[in-house]
Nucleic acid binder design. Structure first.
Length: 412
DNA sequence: CCTCCACCGGAAAGCCGGGTCA
DNA sequence: TGACCCGGCTTTCCGGTGGAGG
């Protein structure tokens, strides 16, 4: 009998190397980031002259090339450092994974071959280890804190201690590069830490459609077999992503998924049609993800809108209608209904998430209200609620709610 | 031009589960 | 262990408002 994986072992007709399209792949060329690369290199070049580079704060939305740029520049710097034998070492830390002061410190200590367990020691002891580690040889240490906002959300001691470590060192110097896609966290910082972290700032603006086209173009040669892409594929991917928010990551994702769609349909080429299918598929997944993680009450409200949609020819409903139906649904589910004010707030949240539309209109004598309508296909939401139901194994009341939510049975 | 509907959305306080500290 | 704090969620209170109808 033929092995069931037989089909999957044959060479791909579409992809040459799919990894090139993954977000963590660092290309040799970063289009449209020359300015940022130069600023970063200028600042860090101090390390090669034996001086201390300023601390740097890097800001930009997701998929604007922050991490790629920093990794690219630090690789170059390390190479040059070895050639010129000026000692400098870079330590890359992702704040999402190392999200407490202790973990960050332990990780840094390990970079200096100190045997620090990932849990257990008093923090100041680890701090001491780092200090002696860094100070061991005369050199320059640059700590890169990616997603630094995640780290700060649990307290700013880590940043505070790192930024003042220089005053306790004799031989070496330490600089910090903080990377974030969120500016609000700066307010949580001690003013001294804030100003020391942002001695220099580099901004990464979103890409436009043309720039995204260049980025995709840069990678297709390695990623795809020659001439499997139709001419319109790249511009279309770029346009879709630019429309969203100029996010290179999602542009690359879209291109990859388009290829996968083409591959699965046994096509020899990736066409415009495949991109559209891929885009639809990704959008659907996004919706499912969002709906699944919604709090129960928001799900009930969403469900209310769907029920209204099913029961009426019209597609728009006033806040009052939605709230009344919501109350009925709640009493049917034997769940305490929220106040009108609260439901109004949750409706706003659903609006921001893009699941429903809620625009304020005035009907003159007949009051002012929001017109609420579903802004995504009915089936994809329903699909998500059903999917959630299957996974839900919590308390019986919750389970009952979920079952009722996907059942759509009449209750009056 | 004024009224008044039916709701919006800010402010503030209450509640609750979880974590911390002495 | 109990006092206390914190953050998220919710309620209560209430001032605000665009425009059809008078």
């Amino acid at each position: 009998m033929e092995n069931m994986f037989q089909d999957f072992t044959t060479e791909s007709a579409i992809f040459e190397n799919k990894e090139v399209l993954r977000p963590n792949y660092i290309p040799e060329n970063l289009p449209h980031r020359a300015k940022q690369i130069k600023s970063l290199a200028d600042i860090l070049s101090a390390a090669l002259k034996g001086e201390t580079p300023s601390n740097i704060f890097i800001y930009g939305k997701t998929g604007t090339g922050k991490t790629a740029t920093v990794k690219y520049v630090s690789k170059e710097l390390e190479e040059m450092g070895e050639k010129t034998s000026s000692k400098c070492s870079l330590i890359y830390i992702n704040g999402e994974i190392f999200d407490t002061q202790y973990r960050v410190f332990a990780y840094i200590a390990r970079a200096f071959n100190k045997h620090v367990p990932m849990v257990g020691w008093p923090t100041d002891m680890v701090y001491l280890e780092i200090k002696t580690g860094i100070d061991g040889g005369k050199k320059c240490v640059i700590v890169i804190l990616d997603e630094v906002d995640k780290l700060v959300s649990k307290g700013d001691e880590a940043l505070y201690n790192l930024s003042r470590i220089n005053s306790e060192l004799n031989n070496s110097r330490l600089s910090i590069i903080g990377i974030s896609n969120d500016l609000t966290f700066m307010e949580l910082l001690d003013p001294r830490v804030r100003s020391s972290l942002s001695e220099e700032e580099i901004i990464f603006p979103p890409y436009n459609a043309n720039q995204l086209k260049d980025i995709l173009g840069e990678r297709v040669e390695k990623a795809f077999n020659s001439s499997v892409l139709d001419g319109e594929v790249i511009p279309l991917c770029a346009a879709f992503a630019a429309q969203e928010n100029g996010d290179a990551r999602s542009a690359l994702d879209l291109l990859r998924v388009s290829g996968e769609v083409a591959e699965r349909s046994k096509s020899k080429k990736v066409t415009e049609e495949h991109v559209r299918l891929a885009s639809e598929k990704m959008e659907k997944n996004r919706i499912i993800e969002v709906v699944k993680t919604l709090p129960v009450q928001s799900k009930i409200i969403l469900n209310t809108v769907i029920r209204l949609n099913k029961a009426n020819a019209k597609r728009r409903f006033s806040s009052g209608e939605v709230y009344n139906t919501y109350r009925k649904l709640c009493s049917h589910l034997k769940i305490e209904a929220l106040s009108q004010r609260r439901v109004s707030a949750l409706v706003s949240e659903l609006d921001i998430l893009g699941l429903i539309n809620a625009a304020i209109i005035s009907k003159g004598r007949y009051g002012r209200t929001r017109e609420i309508s579903l802004s995504v296909p009915e089936e994809s939401v329903q699909h998500a609620l059903v999917g959630y139901c299957e996974l839900e194994t919590l308390s019986t009341i919750k389970l009952k709610t979920q079952v009722a939510l996907c059942g759509y049975e009449k209750w009056e």
